[in-house]
């Protein structure tokens, strides 16, 4: 049942991008979505912020991912309401293709959160205050790296500080074990069929076409 790579730990460079309401249009502008597949999105990631000339792909030196120490970011430190706006899953696919495996933010848009879980990208909820503390340490650290232990529910910083977080069981298990949601659900096939039969008798008009 392990269709994805199990991910008990995310360890790597963390880029601070602590702004509120980073929406999916910002993460992957609509016009960067050019094909009907899930690939080919990483160059469009944060295109509006990342490039001074989007068409010519001229890098904006001020944008965090263009700074050499953050270029290989595996983790993003974000602000509240991360991933709001359009439900486009391309936002998560773009982050993943770029190499991002976790986003730490005070809160997430619900659809974005669900999309993360299904694509092996850990959405870690942590208070604004702790994120500010971590961001401050990261900015002055020699290597701006973090470890996110999804089994222990703990973030470890370069100085050895530890920050506990909580994540509901189901998404955690899916990330840690690499479970595929559809396979998991299909183990309840009998209950699904029984419900459908019962409901079709009670609300027959819903099933008539």
């Amino acid at each position: 049942m392990s269709a994805r790579t199990p991910m008990p730990l995310v360890s790597g460079v963390a880029a601070p991008l602590v702004r509120a309401n980073i929406d999916t249009d910002i993460i992957i502008p609509s016009r960067e979505i050019r094909s009907t597949t899930k690939q080919g999105l990483k160059d469009g990631l944060f295109a509006g912020w990342r490039y001074t000339d989007i068409d010519a792909r001229v890098a904006n030196p001020d944008f965090v991912l263009n700074q050499p120490r953050y270029a290989d970011a595996k983790i993003i430190l974000g602000g509240p309401n991360f991933g709001c706006g359009s439900s486009r899953e391309h936002a998560v696919w773009a982050l993943h293709e770029y190499g991002v495996r976790a986003v730490i933010a005070p809160s997430f848009n619900a659809i974005f959160y669900g999309n993360c879980i299904r694509n092996s990208l850990a959405p870690v909820t942590l208070s604004e205050e702790y994120i500010a503390t971590i961001a401050a340490e990261i900015e002055s650290a020699d290597t701006p790296a973090l470890e996110i232990d999804l089994v222990q529910s703990e973030i470890r910083t370069p100085s050895g500080a530890r920050f506990g977080f909580s994540m509901p069981d189901e998404p955690r298990e899916m990330l840690v074990n690499g479970f595929d949601a559809i396979d998991l659900t299909l183990t309840h096939d009998e209950a699904i069929n029984a419900h459908r039969a019962r409901d079709a008798a009670a609300r027959s008009w819903v099933y008539a076409r």
């Binding site: 439900s87 486009r88 669900g114 999309n115 299904r118 949601a181 559809i182 659900t185 299909l186 699904i192």
Partner: peptide, 22 residues
């Protein structure tokens, strides 16, 4: 309610979705 593509795929394949109650 709105969902992501993978969730839509999930509903297409199974007829159900896994949802946390708001």
């Amino acid at each position: 309610w709105g969902v992501g593509s993978s969730e839509a795929e999930h509903a297409l394949a199974t007829g159900v979705l896994r949802v946390a109650k708001p």
